[in-house]
Nucleic acid binder design. Structure first.
Lengths: 205, 205
DNA sequence: GCTTTTACCGACCACTCGGTTTGTTGCTTT
DNA sequence: AAAGCAACAAACCGAGTGGTCGGTAAAAGC
């Protein structure tokens, strides 16, 4: 058991550093040696724990990437309050951490999707699954909001979810440029504008 | 002169094939040899015309990529008609060609931005310039629309432009998945919803 | 105390990459 | 016809790549 702990600790260290470098430099632009150098570990250690670089990356997806998306984008929108508020706040906070992160290279998930798209179907499968989970959660949050009278009954929740995901992926791609906080501010203002248009119209003005 | 024509023809062929492969496989994942093999040309030919792979890519950006963005996203929104209509139609058509392109790997520009982001500032500069041109054109189209009474005077045109670009980049990243035409349909429906919210409110209902 | 298992080392392999060097060909110019 | 040069061809270089493999030290199991 104690032995297993050490094993898991080493593997976890590798994955954390791996994700960091893959995010920073891209998967194909990061060599296994790069990761190992950072950790002062050897090739032997790496291939003792993982079958291949690809296998290693898949473990990173399942262990780290999925959790990040969950804690950042899925858990915050769970609940029975106003979904418009939940999603706005969630996006606002996700963008805020991006603004304050001086090492920001865009949205982890969409960066990898860009990189593997049409090049590695196996990995794309895993990435698309995460996207799907996010989408499903958004849809159900919106539908709940419809049921609870927050969202207009004519709204197509699946379309709205796609639209929200699109805009988020896009703004995160744009935000890596200069003045990310201005970007965020502008984006959020228009997101709220859009939300206003799908909210239940108040009878009293 | 005749000589110069041949030179330019060869260079153009290289650039067209280069862009094709860079788009398909990514810049770092496409070797110079890959491009040359496709054209049955040699390394000597390549380095006779270009200083480096990077220099080659910059020429592609300036010759081909800029023009594609212009003809696809900038020229179609020029004019004095309703900007909401212009932009809707422009996006619709851009997405439609993506739907019918069986070799679609997402939005050329944003794919490259993803790939070079934080890794190659020199190339990023060129890509951001294109993005900036697009943004400026969107802003001026929206402002013209405001002046002509199509768009509500309270709308922040720069914010709206960022929001539009974001959503476009995002949907093009998502569309590489299955069922792009459903994606497009859903996206366009919500884009129109958003547009409705920034249009001048009609006094008569 | 002895054996087995585990975690890890580091040299090495075949291969790929961007880029260089040296040749070759054919058209132009004088 | 000789010389010159642009446009390519082909062999090559050195750095880096993912992955292999024989070995080792230490802990676990008996």
């Amino acid at each position: 058991m104690d032995k297993n702990l050490k094993r898991m600790a080493t593997m976890h260290r590798m994955q954390v550093t791996g994700l960091e470098l893959f995010y920073k430099n891209g998967y194909y632009n990061t060599s296994v040696d790069d990761i190992l150098k950072e950790l002062s570990l050897s090739k032997g250690a790496f291939y003792h724990h993982y079958d291949s670089k690809e296998d290693f990356f898949i473990e990173i997806i399942q262990n780290l990437l999925v959790r990040k998306v969950y804690s950042m984008l899925i858990e915050p929108i769970e609940g029975h309050e106003n979904p418009v508020e939940l999603i706005s706040t969630c996006f606002e906070e996700a963008l805020e951490t991006a603004v304050h992160n001086e090492m920001d290279f865009g949205f982890l998930l969409s960066n990898f999707i860009c990189e593997f798209n049409g090049r590695n179907p196996k990995i794309m499968k895993y990435l698309n699954d995460i996207l799907k989970i996010w989408e499903v959660n958004l849809v159900s949050t919106l539908q709940k909001g419809k049921f609870n009278g927050y969202i207009d009954r004519h709204v197509d929740c699946e379309a709205a979810a796609i639209y929200l995901i699109s805009s988020f992926i896009g703004i995160r791609t744009l935000m890596v440029e200069a003045s990310p906080s201005a970007m965020k501010y502008r984006f959020m203002s228009q997101l709220r504008q859009y939300f206003k248009s799908i909210e239940t119209r108040q009878t009293a003005v």
